[in-house]
Write a protein that binds this DNA or RNA. Structure first.
Lengths: 201, 201
DNA sequence: TCAAAAGTGTTATGGTTACACCCATGA
DNA sequence: TCATGGGTGTAACCATAACACTTTTGA
């Protein structure tokens, strides 16, 4: 999700939402605040990505940025265009317009992190609604990893972990056999991790 | 490796080496510079760890720290006590004295990162001299992972990857059968990664 | 000759991969 | 009735884990 900048430098250029850290707030809090101010998005999964400190990355002077990435469940947020932005829009991470500052390199770092992480941490669920089908989940993995996965093997592998609850509910309104819905069981996942379980796909 | 602080706050307390970023240097450069100034250690493997921004973490005022961790090959550095420190010393990461600021939590983040990383990236070699035995390498893994590994299985696994060169050279001066020496083949590792190989132990 | 670590193969088990057909729904 | 994706089992292969003895050196 990018914003089109309303102010110089890089006016009218697409950029990541962001801004300055307050004297009495953590960078986590600042990231949340800026994201909400500029796009309306709130209550997201947010993780610190990396700190970018190239000396000339901002033409206004020396700026060091602590970058965060957010994962968004579809339909879970209400987007609104904040004061700083002319526009807010979604773009494919592998198909971006030209970005302000060094934001292209921030996005590419984020993508790498996501790819590196998705197989070892249950973050795929942060990109799905609470109730989802195994096909949706598989699709998330296929998009992030950039390759197709075998349906039967994928299902066997995720179900074996025992961190998904099958709900008494199916999809409806689809023009094909309706799919079983599942929920990610966070509490059970944490219990298993305590006992040495490690997520792996 | 810790330094004993010469100045307030936390005078005489053990702390991580560190200091302020120059207006025209990256945080990477600042980390290297401070490390060398305070301890003499240079030319190390250095990786950005995390940025710590709790509001009251420094009694002097608002300070945000971009933490780095270094991996040191034994005998590869010459330690010297810089102007800022009263003393420089090595400590077991799981057996530390009380630390200044929030440095204990920085160390614990670094340990977690190291444990999480060592199985998927060939960083164990950064903790060994250029020439090493497979037993040394195995010991590194056992210490970091906190459990014993099977000698035969470990050897088979690392040799199968094809990123170690057996040298025409053996240990000497040991009171037991001398061991074959190996070298990590960085170039070959990178070649393999290009072709989709992924390190895993 | 002793103590210490080096070095080496095999087997059983379990996990991974590849693969094809019938089912339930809405249009 | 058709198109669409949902759902399921097996067999071959490969990787992992467990395990014990001989070798070489310095003291």
């Amino acid at each position: 999700m990018l914003i089109k900048r309303r102010t110089e430098p890089f006016e009218d250029c697409w950029a990541l939402p962001g801004g300055f850290v307050g004297i009495a707030e953590t960078t986590d809090a600042a990231a949340r605040r800026e994201l909400e101010e500029e796009t309306g998005a709130k209550d997201l999964f947010l993780e610190q990505l990396y700190t970018f400190s190239t000396v000339d990355r901002d033409p206004r002077g020396r700026v060091i940025s602590v970058a965060y990435f957010a994962l968004v469940k579809p339909n879970s947020i209400q987007i609104r265009v904040g004061d700083e932005a002319k526009e807010v829009g979604w773009f494919g991470a592998r198909d971006l317009p030209e970005l302000a500052f060094d934001h292209a390199s921030i996005v590419s770092t984020a993508l790498q992190r996501l790819v590196g992480k998705v197989r070892y941490q249950p973050i795929g669920f942060e990109l799905l609604p609470q109730k989802f089908t195994l096909s949706h989940l598989q699709k998330i993995y296929e998009v992030i990893l950039g390759r197709d996965l075998d349906k039967r093997n994928f299902r066997r592998a995720v179900l074996k972990m025992g961190i998904l609850d099958a709900l008494d509910e199916k999809e409806s309104g689809v023009p094909h056999r309706p799919s079983q819905l599942f929920r990610f069981d966070q509490a059970e996942y944490e219990r298993l991790v305590q006992r040495g379980f490690s997520f792996e796909l």
